[in-house]
Design a protein around this nucleic acid. Structure first.
Length: 807
RNA sequence: GGAUCUGUGGUGGAAUUGGUAUACACGCCACACUCAAAAUGUGGUGUCAAUAGACAUCUGAGUUCAAAUCUCAGCAGAUCCA
């Protein structure tokens, strides 16, 4: 159906080979040029190959790369693979194929596909996170974190699925069952490695202000970090030594605290529970362990809880208040305990109503018989806070707490430390080991990389244990001192490799450092980073965290890694739904390239709509983009294969020349603004105009090829060659437009009367307002409307519109 | 429930950031080429009315000489968070 006039099937491989052979995109430091580092989020090389969503962002970054080269920048534009991950391991468990082999094959396939698009990557810088030469440095960074005291071990629950004999991630657990196989899952307590990202919370928050990122992504990160100012309050436990610390943003409501709630996992629960309640509490704890945090904190859900039999003392009035446990309080969030003020918190209110706990109103307002009141107001029933408003009451209470050693003002973060252990085989081994007494030792940097051992058993070794635990000869070793040591068997999460890959591209072969010092200073920061919005929080936050640590130890010279960020929108199926195998609406780029060529696919994906918006696929629309390339081709090449005889050294018409300069202006500006769809539509206008012209000035037509080249590089190279130009297109200078050509001698003004468009008048560009008014009032159409009416206002908005108000 | 974003022809989307609403493309219609079709080229295409004109940017109000654009209220959808 794609009746092509130009043979993309020959042209595209021809130029891809040419670029590869000539190393056209090889990048070196060149201090005579400004640098530009433009980065794609590197893909996980899945067995399915590329989908049409990948090339959307990659084409956008390729257009900018090619444009910047022509603008005289030294451009670094690399690609690599984030190749550790679950699918290869699952496949290994099923088939016995080593993940290394699967990964190698997939990378080959991905590379083949990426090359078919003609992306201008410097392939000599390709990286692969599973290469020991690469993960040596991932492990090295981990050791630096360890040395800085940012690594610690903590007992935390993980999801264990007996049916799958595997530990599952939160996302893999749906309604207390495994997403795959629907087996029950349970919480298992396990010692795991944590990274103290919370230590960097403030800097991660402040750093956002300087970044040229979408506001939505910055906002998401701010919410994720979740800084809140409040107070720590210390409650003592009735008849016991222990204290309970809570964090609250509403210390002013302390007089209304009528009970406390501990997370079921809170270690104090066991101590304070009286014999009478022991059994119930134990049962409740077991139940809570099966629920995910998401389910537990759902607002609408029915509140559950159990009284422990213990009491705490409210420090402000020495009242005994009951201590409950409930799953709506999470362990690992804040202090795992809350003071409950049912009168002024909705969840506490529902809880208190259900279990008939006392509700004391301490702020005037609302109707406490019906619902909690969370607004501001005058404090009542609050001793020394009475008559104060919220703000004043908070500050007075915080001073009181501090003076009396019952707490202090405190900043709290929603951000939690980063759980860094995975009970998997296909990940970076953690370079730590323990002796028989359990003492932890970091490996020496000179011993890195700690390679993954070969094995044929990829299944986990048992509840919460990694497959590596099966390989005794790897785990146990004797050091020179003759003592026995045990390696850590957990591996790093997939984020680890992707956390710093942008640095490795800068000097992929450096053996002495993770990134060469001089090269790093030249290339960093990444000027422009393009990728999916799904990484708005985790990847982009973790990478910023590591980067700041590297900055602190002097390994990098910038405080932030990614200056500008763009999220491309999802490409949906023709049905407007997310592409998925089960919906059978997946479009395969291999098929598209076979039928229409890579240039057509590139142009189409850029022309679909604004890059950052989600948009549905249209096969017809793709045909239109292909037709556009054919029209370009025919504008240059006649049916006999020779150059179009209209292309000559004579001057083109005034109009066509004007359109050309306008096109140069718009295409350049719109690339800078990443508005590729409108850049393309302007090129279409130029081509449409060109079809009506008899004289296509050779110089203009040459420059137009340059405008096309970032978008459709193959056809551009071919036409460039057919025009007989020897200069290297990739490094030719981007055309400059002549401003004077765009200045009009005359201006056509639309004339509005009482807000309605009534006529148009043409005036000379240098006519003053009086002259314009004269022309307008003499216009016959205008006269018809203003006849017998009084002119109230007469406005000329320069170069825009004339507006008349009559009555 | 919260945060952020979006809402324009039959469809994807433009609109110089408050100034002629619907650029460009898809689809559809007509004409040319053709024995015919495809491809290609040219023209038309918001709705009602057919000279004029009236009405149209999710709904309703407001600001303004002028609103798709700004403000408020509501409705619908998307993403993230709870």
């Amino acid at each position: 159906m794609s009746n092509s006039l130009y043979s993309f099937a020959e042209i595209e491989p021809k130029w891809q080979k040419y670029w590869e052979k000539n190393k056209t995109f090889k990048t070196k430091i060149d201090k005579s040029k400004p640098k530009y580092y433009i980065l794609d989020m590197f893909p996980y090389p899945s067995g399915n190959g590329l989908h049409v969503g990948h090339p959307e962002g990659y084409t956008a970054s390729d257009i900018v790369s090619r444009y910047k080269r022509m603008k005289g920048f030294n451009v670094l534009h690399p690609m690599g693979f984030d190749a550790f991950g679950l699918p290869a391991e699952t496949y290994a468990i099923q088939t016995g194929t080593h993940p290394k082999i699967t990964t190698e094959n997939n990378i080959k396939n991905f590379t083949r596909q990426l090359k078919m698009f003609g992306f201008s990557y410097d392939w000599d810088r390709k990286i692969n996170t599973t290469d020991p030469k690469y993960y040596k440095w991932t492990q090295w960074i981990f050791l630096q974190l360890y040395k800085k005291g940012l690594v610690y071990e903590k007992e935390t629950p993980v999801w264990w699925c007996e049916g799958l004999k595997s530990v599952l991630a939160n996302e893999e657990v749906v309604n207390g069952k495994s997403e795959r196989g629907d087996y029950p899952v349970k919480r298992v307590m396990l010692k795991q490695w944590m990274l103290k990202i919370t230590k960097y919370a403030d800097r991660l928050l402040e750093g956002l202000d300087k970044l040229d990122w979408p506001e939505s992504v910055k906002e998401m990160q701010r919410n994720w970090i979740g800084r809140s100012e409040g107070a720590e309050v210390i409650f003592s436990v009735d008849q016991r030594e222990e204290k309970i610390k809570v964090f609250t943003t509403r210390s002013d409501t302390l007089f209304g605290a009528t009970y406390m709630v501990l997370a079921p996992e809170h270690p104090l629960v066991e101590k304070i529970t009286t014999d009478e309640y022991k059994e119930e509490v134990e049962n409740y704890k077991k139940q809570a362990m099966t629920k995910s945090d998401l389910v537990r904190t759902e607002l609408e859900k029915d509140k559950t809880g159990i009284f422990t039999g213990g009491y705490a003392i409210n420090p402000v009035n020495n009242q005994k208040i009951p201590i409950w446990i409930s799953d709506y309080v999470l362990w690992g969030y804040g202090t795992g305990a809350i003071m409950a003020v049912p009168a002024h918190d909705q969840r506490d209110y529902e809880f208190a109503k259900k279990f008939e706990i006392k509700i004391i109103q301490v702020i005037n307002g609302g109707d406490i018989d019906k619902e909690s009141y969370e607004g501001d107001g005058i404090h009542i029933n609050s001793g020394f806070l009475n008559d104060l408003n919220k703000e004043d009451a908070i500050s007075k209470m915080n001073s009181w707490l501090e003076e009396n050693n019952y707490g202090k003002a405190q900043v709290n973060y929603k951000l939690r430390d980063w759980l860094f252990s995975r009970q998997r085989y296909w990940g970076e081994p953690i370079p730590l080991y323990k002796d028989e007494a359990g003492k932890i030792y970091p490996m020496k940097e000179s011993e890195l990389p700690l390679k993954l051992p070969e094995t044929e058993k990829y299944k986990p070794a048992g509840a919460g244990k990694s497959p590596l635990a099966n390989i005794r000869e790897w785990v146990e070793f004797e050091d020179n001192d003759g003592k026995k040591y045990f390696r850590e068997t957990h591996t790093m999460p997939q984020w680890a490799g992707s956390n710093w890959y942008y640095l490795r591209y800068i000097s992929p072969d450096s053996e002495s450092r993770l990134v060469d010092e001089n090269d790093e200073k030249y290339w960093m920061p990444v000027d422009f980073y393009i990728g999916g919005a799904e990484h708005a929080v985790l990847h982009l936050l973790y990478a910023r965290f590591w980067h700041k640590v590297l900055f602190d130890i002097g390994a990098v010279s910038t405080d932030e890694p990614f200056q500008k960020l763009l999220n491309q929108g999802l490409i949906l199926g023709t049905d407007g739904e997310k592409m998925s195998k089960s919906r059978r609406n997946v479009v395969n780029p291999d098929d598209v390239i076979k039928e229409f060529g890579a240039d057509s696919l590139r142009i189409y994906e850029m022309f679909m709509g604004p890059i950052e918006r989600p948009k549905p696929w249209s096969t017809k629309g793709l045909g239109g983009s292909h037709r556009f390339l054919n029209r370009i081709w025919r504008l240059y090449i006649a049916d006999n294969g020779e150059l179009n005889p209209n292309i000559k050294d004579e001057k083109s018409s005034e109009e066509f020349e004007k359109e050309f300069h306008k096109t140069v202006k718009i295409v350049g500006e719109h690339i800078e603004e990443t508005r590729f769809n409108t850049a393309i539509s302007q090129m279409m206008v130029f081509v449409n105009t060109g079809y009506k012209e008899n004289i296509l000035n050779r110089e203009m037509m040459t420059k137009f090829i340059q405008l096309v080249s970032p978008f459709a590089p193959h056809i551009a190279e071919e036409l460039w060659e057919k025009m007989g130009i020897a200069e290297n297109l990739t490094y030719s200078s981007w055309p400059v437009y002549n401003k004077l050509k765009l200045v009009e001698d005359t201006i056509e003004y639309p004339v509005m009367i009482n807000g309605k468009m009534r006529s148009k008048v043409v005036v000379n560009a240098d006519d003053d307002n009086d002259k314009i008014k004269e022309i307008v009032l003499n216009d016959s159409r205008i006269q018809k409307f203003i006849e017998g009416k009084k002119i109230f206002k007469f406005l000329v908005i320069p170069k825009k519109i004339v507006t008349v108000v009559i009555k």
